[in-house]
Simulated scan of single mutants.
Amino acid sequence: MTKDYLLLAYLNAWEYCPRRFYWEYVLGEMQDNEHIILGRHLHRNIDQPGTIQEGDTLIHQQQWVWCDRLQVVGIIDAVEECDGQLVPVEYKKGKMAQHLNDHFQLCAAALCLEERTGRNITYGEIFYHANRRRQTVAFTPQLREMTEQAIALAHLASQNPMPAPIDNTKKCQSCSVQGICLPLEVKKLQQQNS
């Protein structure tokens, strides 16, 4: 593997906001906010590598995976194995909803697992801590295609200039790099110069 492999977590950042991706992945600028700190705190119990058994299910925690074809690499929070089927599981601090960034990260993890194991993985699950529920994510042909396209776009974006701020006030308010990205200030300067 080379340094050009995209971490799965950065794929999540890409779908959330290409500018955030650029700050974190290309420039290496990371900032903690309440969301990052809470997420780190909630992961403390699952961040221990190893395998445990719950009934008929083997749970492989903190599994390193990669996909040479797509040049992505990362850690899956857990891979559950039961009756010969592998199910990647991600743990998120928020509430269950249709978060495409979470779906891309999970699907990319499945694509890595498929390349590593030669097995077909049909779905994964995301456990949302805020409402303590699991969401099943089917790895449809459409989601697989969108995920692969997002990976390609993220790789391409890392070679280009920084993207402009997005027009999503809610995302910007919750973003960990808001204090260095300064989306409102950048937009105001762009308006003054146009």
Rank of each mutant, 00 (worst) to 15 (best):
N12T: 07
R144V: 12
P165M: 00
N120E: 12
I37R: 13
R20T: 08
A157H: 08
K92L: 12
Q135Y: 05
A108F: 07
L153D: 09
A13I: 03
P163K: 06
C17D: 01
V26D: 01
W14P: 01
E34N: 15
S194M: 11
L58S: 04
V72N: 02
F139S: 03
I37Y: 01
R133C: 07
L184H: 14
H60W: 05
K187D: 00
P163M: 02
I126Q: 01
K171R: 14
Y128H: 13
H41L: 14
L11V: 04
V137T: 09
C82T: 15
Y123I: 07
H43G: 15
N193F: 13
I36P: 10
T147F: 03
A152C: 02
C107L: 04
R116H: 08
W66M: 09
C175Y: 01
N168I: 04
Q191F: 02
V72P: 00
H155A: 05
Q190H: 10
I36F: 10
E90P: 02
A97W: 14
V177S: 09
W64M: 14
M96N: 12
G124I: 09
L11A: 05
I126M: 10
C181M: 10
Q48P: 00
E145V: 06
I126N: 07
L8S: 06
V72F: 08
P141E: 09
L27Y: 12
Q53P: 00
P161A: 12
K92Q: 04
Y25L: 08
H155T: 01
D68W: 00
N12Q: 11
A97P: 15
I166Y: 03
Y91Q: 05
Q135R: 13
I37F: 04
D83I: 02
N101I: 00
Y22T: 02
G179K: 09
T51Y: 00
Q71H: 13
G124N: 12
G179W: 12
E90M: 01
M30A: 02
H35C: 11
G124C: 12
I52T: 12
L111K: 04
K187R: 11
N45K: 15
D4H: 02
L189A: 14
M162L: 11
G118L: 07
E15K: 13
E115W: 05
Q190D: 03
P163Y: 06
Y22G: 07
I121H: 11
L42Q: 15
M96Q: 15
R134C: 11
